[in-house]
Computed example of a mutant assay.
Amino acid sequence: MKKRIYIAYTGGTIGMHRSPNGYVLKPGFARLIEDKIPPRLSGEMPDYDLHEYPTPIDSSNIVPADWLRVARDIVDRYQDYDGFVVLHGTDTMAYTASALSFMLQGLDKPVIVTGSQIPLSEVRNDAQDNLVTAIELACDFHIPEVCLYFNGRLLRGNRSLKVKTTGFDAFDSPNFPWLAQIGIHIELNHRVLLPHPPATQFELPDSYATHQVVPLQLFPGISADLIDSITQQSCRGLILRTYGVGNAPDNDPALLDALSRANKRGIIILNLSQCLQGGVHQGSYATGSALANAGVISGGDMTLEAAFTKLHHLFSCGLDEDKIRQKIQSNLCGELSDIET
């Protein structure tokens, strides 16, 4: 029996058209595929059903509730298809891929998130290859996880991030190997793929409200007043982007006291490095140990996108504070290497 693929078109550059004000989204992506994918090529593709969301969205406008909508879309059709492709804008693609990985734990079918830097409507574009390859990956390969495909690279969704604004090789996975390299041949890295799950463990909350998770990058001279201002709002989680292996000023008692007070109020404070590669090791320097003493938790080598969506997910699941602290430091679906505190 010929395999069937489900394609969820959420919007993004891949379906945009030129306008006097720049690229804009228009309905009718199915017709665009028919016009732009050659009949010979489309005849070699698996059967697919395309669902175009009623209001395509520029990914800069994505909010956490949209992640849940896409996840529900997949779960509702999970038994009817052999694989899934999510077409998405590039700006927040890594956030959505990460969020889906936490809601769709225990997948035994591929979910491939992709898009493009140039719209399919243009003569010269990267959209056709990304779309066709994503469909092939979703159809012909046993990849039991949420992935991001772009320009010959198949990445674990919750390990990916956008690293270039204009290059076709816009995404990478600095702290984890690629799941596959796609050239003349598709070469899967079986060693790093998630294992086949004994059962699905989908975790779809009733709602995915915009819980207040705030990333804050440290900078020389950052004040305790800024920490207090942020954490005294409706903030439930603070992602502290620190220096190097997780360091922050240890000669500013007011700053450390502000973090300690926030921690005592139940705010989850997660330590992530500003560096592109490597992770947090809070005990390597006294400056990192000071954060640990204030109640700050190591985020290991998670990307900002993975940490941000993971906190949102744990909050949405209604877990208590102790359980969230335990799970945020646990590897749930490949987003995190072993933590060294």
Rank of each mutant, 00 (worst) to 15 (best):
V132W: 10
D206G: 12
S116W: 00
A127W: 00
L255A: 06
I112E: 00
H88S: 03
A224V: 01
T287C: 11
E44S: 13
T200W: 02
K3Y: 12
L179S: 07
A199P: 00
Y285C: 02
S42D: 15
D66T: 11
R191Y: 08
V280Y: 04
D82N: 06
D252A: 08
G279R: 03
F84N: 01
I328E: 04
S101N: 13
P54T: 10
R265T: 12
H313C: 03
I182G: 03
D73V: 00
D252K: 07
T165H: 14
I37S: 04
D206E: 15
F29T: 10
L304R: 06
H17N: 09
S229L: 09
P38G: 05
V146Y: 00
S173G: 06
V213I: 12
L291P: 00
Y149H: 06
I37V: 15
H88C: 02
D140Q: 13
L179I: 03
P38T: 12
V192S: 01
T341V: 15
L32Y: 04
H51Q: 15
R69T: 14
W178N: 09
N247M: 08
T200A: 14
F141D: 05
D338W: 02
L256Q: 08
A65K: 08
R156Y: 04
Q105D: 14
V85C: 00
L161P: 01
E44I: 13
P253C: 06
E203H: 14
E340N: 15
A199I: 09
D49R: 07
N130R: 03
Q181K: 15
A134M: 14
G83T: 04
A286S: 13
L137F: 13
K26Q: 11
L154A: 02
L259H: 03
G295T: 05
P64D: 06
T10M: 13
S298V: 11
N61R: 13
W178G: 00
V213M: 04
G43Y: 11
N271H: 07
T341E: 13
L270C: 05
H281K: 10
P249H: 06
D76H: 12
K162H: 10
D169L: 11
V214A: 07
